[in-house]
Amino acid sequence: MVWPHKSGFGIKLVRMGCKNRPYYQIGAMPSRRRTGLLPDEVIGSLDPVPNERNEIVAAVDLSRLSYWMGRGARLSVGMQTLLGLAGWTPVPPHVYIKAKQEHSTTTTTQPQESDGDGGDNGEEKIEIESILPKRLPF
């Protein structure tokens, strides 16, 4: 089989499932393929609905992902975000920007309660919460 040019492939999230219960497959497919079609190779899956432990479950075959990235496949914005939050690639800047915006809206609407002990425990908690988004941005 003849493969297209290196930049012709992308790693994307392909939405599956029902209207109220989304499910994503992580697949390698040509960049010019219409959305909604099945990928050429499924290399993982993502369940964006949190489970009973409030975890978002994602599974990725990292060897196949590195193979496709080595062939020049581009990551979609959703995949950049997912792999950045997982620690496999650098976190994209738009995740930090959105987290800062969400943090500023929550601090203006909800005043912080002081414990009265004068400790800096609240500041450390705010810094960690401002980095990670409350939900996935895709």
Rank of each mutant, 00 (worst) to 15 (best):
V2W: 06
W3K: 14
H5F: 10
S7D: 15
S7F: 12
F9C: 10
F9P: 03
G10E: 15
I11S: 12
I11C: 10
K12N: 12
L13M: 10
L13F: 08
M16D: 08
G17H: 06
C18S: 15
C18I: 12
C18Q: 15
C18N: 14
P22A: 02
Y23D: 03
I26Y: 02
A28H: 08
M29K: 07
R32V: 13
R32G: 15
T35S: 14
L37W: 08
L37E: 13
P39F: 02
P39A: 02
P39V: 00
D40E: 07
D40Q: 05
E41Y: 03
E41H: 03
E41F: 04
G44L: 01
S45G: 00
L46M: 03
L46K: 01
D47P: 01
D47K: 05
D47A: 06
P48L: 08
P48G: 04
V49K: 10
P50K: 02
P50V: 06
N54S: 10
N54R: 08
E55P: 07
E55R: 15
V57P: 03
A58Y: 11
S63F: 07
R64S: 12
L65M: 07
S66E: 14
Y67W: 09
W68Q: 07
M69N: 07
M69I: 14
G70N: 14
G70R: 03
R71G: 09
A73S: 15
A73P: 04
A73D: 05
L75D: 08
S76E: 04
V77H: 12
G78S: 08
G78C: 10
M79L: 14
Q80C: 12
Q80A: 07
T81S: 15
L82F: 08
L82S: 06
G84F: 04
G84P: 06
L85H: 01
G87T: 02
T89C: 12
T89A: 11
P90A: 08
P90H: 09
P92V: 06
P93C: 01
V95E: 08
V95K: 04
Y96R: 05
I97M: 11
I97R: 13
Q101C: 05
Q101D: 13
E102W: 04
E102Y: 02
S104R: 12
S104K: 13
S104V: 11
T105G: 02
T106G: 02
T108W: 09
P111G: 09
S114T: 02
S114D: 04
D115I: 00
D115C: 11
G116E: 00
D117H: 01
D117T: 00
E127F: 10
E127Y: 08
I128K: 06
I128C: 00
E129D: 13
S130F: 00
S130I: 03
I131M: 03
L136A: 04
F138S: 00
F138E: 00
